[in-house]
Lab assay of single mutants.
Amino acid sequence: TGEEYIAVGDFTAQQVGDLTFKKGEILLVIEKKPDGWWIAKDAKGNEGLVPRTYLEPYS
């Protein structure tokens, strides 16, 4: 389980392990790392690192 967040901007993977997403996408945050990069999963089940500055809590 995780917390749902909504993307407030588009993000394109910079390196292997990053997750590309579009503004408005709902992501499930699995782990919040202290460096500001969180592990998240998208609706298709893809998992990767995302920058927390692009996310806001979804309710």
Rank of each mutant, 00 (worst) to 15 (best):
T1V: 15
Q14P: 07
D42I: 02
D10W: 05
P51S: 14
E47G: 07
E4T: 14
F21D: 00
N46V: 12
W38Q: 00
T1Y: 13
G48R: 01
I6H: 04
E3K: 13
E31W: 11
E3Q: 13
R52I: 11
Y5H: 06
L19W: 02
I26V: 13
K44D: 15
D10N: 12
P57D: 05
I26G: 02
K22P: 02
K41G: 03
T1W: 09
G45C: 04
D35R: 03
A43P: 14
D18P: 04
V29I: 15
G9Y: 15
A7N: 00
L49S: 15
K41L: 11
Q15W: 07
E4D: 08
G17C: 05
I6S: 03
E31M: 11
E3C: 04
E31S: 14
F11N: 03
T20Q: 09
L55G: 00
V8R: 10
A40E: 00
A40N: 00
V29Q: 00
Y58F: 08
S59F: 13
T20E: 09
Y54R: 08
G36A: 05
G45K: 04
E25N: 10
V8M: 13
D35M: 05
I39R: 14
Q15L: 10
D10I: 02
K22H: 11
K44M: 11
G2E: 10
E4F: 12
L27E: 00
Y58V: 10
T53P: 09
G36R: 03
G2K: 11
A7C: 05
P34C: 07
I26S: 03
K22N: 09
Y58C: 05
P34W: 12
P57Q: 11
T20P: 15
T20M: 05
I30M: 12
E56G: 06
L19A: 01
G48A: 02
K23H: 08
D10E: 07
V16N: 12
K22F: 13
V16I: 09
A7D: 00
W37C: 04
A13E: 05
E47M: 13
G17R: 06
K44I: 11
E25Y: 05
D35W: 05
D42H: 03
A40F: 02
F11I: 04
Y58H: 10
V50Q: 00
G2Y: 10
W38V: 03
D42R: 02
K41Y: 07
I30F: 14
A7S: 06
W38A: 02
G45Y: 04
E25H: 10
L27I: 08
K33G: 11
L27C: 02
Q14R: 13
K22W: 08
D35P: 02
I30D: 02
D18K: 10
D10Y: 05
A7Y: 02
T20W: 04
I39S: 06
E31I: 11
G9V: 14
I6F: 06
Y5N: 02
D42T: 05
V50E: 00
G9R: 13
K41R: 13
K44F: 14
I26Q: 03
I6N: 02
D10H: 07
Y58M: 10
D10Q: 05
L55P: 00
W38N: 01
P51Q: 10
K44N: 13
D18E: 13
K23T: 10
T12P: 08
F21I: 14
L19N: 01
V50T: 03
K33S: 07
V16C: 06
A43C: 04
P34R: 08
V29N: 00
L19V: 03
L49A: 10
E56Q: 10
Q15S: 14
T53F: 06
G24D: 05
F21C: 04
K22L: 07
